[in-house]
Each structure stands twice: as structure tokens, then as C-alpha cells.
Design a protein around this nucleic acid. Sequence first.
DNA 1: AAGAATGTTATGTA
DNA 2: CTACATAACATTCT
Length: 262
Amino acid sequence: MPEGHTIHRAARKQREVLAGDAVQASSPQGRFADGAALLDGRVLKDIEAYGKHLFYRFEDDLLLHVHLGLFGRFFTHKGDVPPPRGAIRLRLIGRDAAVDLRGPTACEMIEGDDEARLLARLGPDPLRADAEPDRAWDRISRSKREIGALVMDQSVMAGVGNVYRAEALHVLGIHPSREGRSLSREEFDALWATVCRMLADGERAGRIVTVSAEDAGVPRSRIPRGERTYVYRQSSCRSCGGPVSSWDLAGRRSWACESCQG
DNA sequence: AAGAATGTTATGTA
DNA sequence: CTACATAACATTCT
């Protein structure tokens, strides 16, 4: 479910309801019991998102790293906290709400230079004010790899996933199979700006809607499920109506309109 | 009800 | 060293 926008949104929302106070931490399913025991009763000082990674900073320099992976999800309970059902890896209960975590790829206590090592593997994050897009340009402009593989490579830029890769390249008319080094600086700048806009938009809306209201013919908030993207999981292009081809690119399904992105 | 999916990493092969 | 493929792992939905 998550690309970078989901992660940043979770950080912001959870910061509002959890940060600044002691939290009650538990791992009802047991797999994270040791970590939860360490965190229980401590003050959660801040939550920070970087790409698709989340860092929970607790008092006494305790640091929790969470990565949702493909299936991970948060559930927030306001008011009464229901008894845990199923495989909840982590439950944090704060003053205003409780947050459950299920299905993460990573939910672990880290220390020392673990955080620095993780961050060193990440490219600039379009949702962060401190992002340095030139770092992404350096990689892309020198690479023979396909641009569709590069934009999803978290060490090139952090936060873009399979939906935004398809959609961002589509609106710019760039075919995912083009070599990274074939992009002009202008094309890269437009790509970066588009990815920034799309991710920020997704964070605000809480879901991915790349189709414009004009193209959809209805307000963006009312576009039906399955019609919110131009080419991602589409058989025909929602922009020009032409056929959309799909194939495997860097281990994930990729979509492109051969007419718009020829 | 099998299979795909808004992801990453470790490992093997060329 | 680079590139690419495969497997592994997490869970929900159709």
C-alpha cells in the first residue's frame, strides 16, 4: 500500500496524537516484545519520515525503525482502544489515540550508526525540505539503466513506488525504458518537480489521484476507484485513449502509453 | 480460492 | 564491479 506520501502522512498524523508524552507500548503478537518492552512508558519525542522509512525517537536515545514494505499498514483508534485482534506487531497508546501496526517489513530497535547507515542508502526524498535533487541527477545522468528502474531505486530518489513511477513518467511523456543518461537536464528537472507535486498531493489527499479533474470530468475527490491513474493498471490511456502496454521492469509491473510516451 | 499487489534485501549467476 | 534474476518475508483483496 505505501509509497512515500503514505509514510510522511503517517508521521504527521501520529506526531499529532502521540508525540510529546509517554506512550504505552506493546507487541500483542509477541514478535516485537523486546522492543515494545523497552519503549513502554517512555516519552515519544518525535517521528521522522525519510523516503519510505519511519524513525521514532524516544527519550534516552531509544530509536525505533519502521518500514511498511508492501503490506504494512497503520490503524489508528480514537477513543476506546479495542482489544488487539490478529497479528498486531506494535501498539502505541498515546494521550489522544492509539496506533496499531500490522505487516511491516521492519519494526526494530536500532542504535549507534544504524540510522546513518540506513540513510546513507537513500537518495533525496522529494517530500523533504532538505532534499538535494542534484544527487538524483548525478546518478540518472550517468546511468545506462532504464529510467523506470532508476526512479524506483530508493538510492536514486527515496519515496517513489510503482504507481508514481508509472504516472510521473506518463505525464512527462517519458518512456520508462529510456536510459537514464538519455534524459536532458530539463527533463530531469520536470521529473523531479512532478514527483514532488504528486507525492505532496498524495500526502494531502491520503490517496493517489493523478488524473486531473478536467480529464476525469468530475472533482478529483469523486473519481471512482480504478480510474484515478492515467496508465497505472489501465488498459487504455486515460489521457489519449490509446492502448497501454505493460511489462515487467525491475521486478515490478510497469505501464506506459505507447502513444503519449513513445 | 489462487494470485496479485503502492516493497526491500540477500544471494546467486553472467 | 555491474547488472540482472530469483527467492524470501510481510497481508489483504478480488
